[in-house]
Computed example of a mutant assay.
Amino acid sequence: MINVYSWPTPNGHKVHVMLEECGFRLGRDWQAFPVNIGKGDQFKPDFLAISPNNKIPALVDPHGPDGKPISLFESGAILLYLAAKTGKLLPKSDRLKFQVLQWLMFQMGSVGPMIGQTHHFRQYAPEKIDYAVNRYTNETRRLYGVMDRQLATSKFIACNQYTIADVAIFPWLRNWANHGIDWADYPHLKKWFDLVSARPAVQRGVQVLADLRRPLTGDKERDILFGKTQYAKR
């Protein structure tokens, strides 16, 4: 049984979806342990032992590459591990594989960080800072445009087959309305979004732990996620 320590965020859902897409089933092949990041579970010693950057998700597979247990943090690394373990969602040819990997890196280096900042300054910041809102919203719109242009000539993000690049990017676009996005501006991306949304494994994956998430309202939660608690020496 694969153990996943996670929370219903885009990075968490990337791994939930990937497991389901690879043929693993929640409760049969893998189990999800909630790490409530609003309450500070990510700073507990047991979690830090497998995720030293105190970020979800983390994965523990009792049957690693050499038959021994392996623990992994960083969602992109987990996607690559599961693709290697199952032989799914990462093309075998070098040409297609590197096409996929560049779009996976695009998600890790641009989509996640920039959209994360957009979401923070539009939804969570205690005061509205117009410069920050405009800067990150405009960058998010630029990234949506990059993906829209790519999908004008490709069925899926990296190529004409569904891959880990799609798994990685999709959860980050589910809150498009909070990003200041109008889908009418990105018709190719919207078509892709609807196509991926309809996949049964995606629908199962984004429901994992979803009933546990609550709106962020308290000062204590804000401090844990964005304040001094986040930066305390450990």
Rank of each mutant, 00 (worst) to 15 (best):
M1Y: 02
S6N: 12
W7S: 00
W7D: 01
K14Q: 10
H16L: 02
M18P: 00
C22R: 01
F24L: 00
R25T: 04
L26H: 13
W30L: 00
Q31L: 09
I37E: 03
I37A: 04
F47T: 06
L48A: 11
P52T: 08
P52I: 09
N53I: 13
K55E: 11
K55A: 10
I56W: 01
I56P: 01
P57Q: 04
D61N: 05
P62D: 07
P69D: 11
A77H: 08
Y81F: 09
L82H: 03
A84M: 10
T86S: 00
L89N: 11
K92D: 13
L96I: 08
L104V: 15
L104N: 04
F106S: 07
F106Q: 06
M108Q: 13
V111I: 15
G112T: 10
G112E: 15
P113L: 06
G116A: 03
Q117M: 13
T118I: 07
H120C: 09
H120Y: 15
R122P: 12
Y124R: 06
K128D: 11
D130M: 08
A132E: 13
N134D: 15
T137G: 08
E139R: 11
T140A: 11
T140G: 09
L143N: 07
L143F: 13
F156L: 04
N160L: 07
A168V: 05
P171I: 01
A177C: 07
G180D: 09
I181C: 10
K190H: 14
D194Y: 04
D194R: 04
L195H: 12
V196R: 00
R199H: 02
Q203L: 05
L209A: 02
L212Q: 14
P215C: 10
G218E: 14
I224S: 04
F226N: 05
K228H: 13
T229H: 10
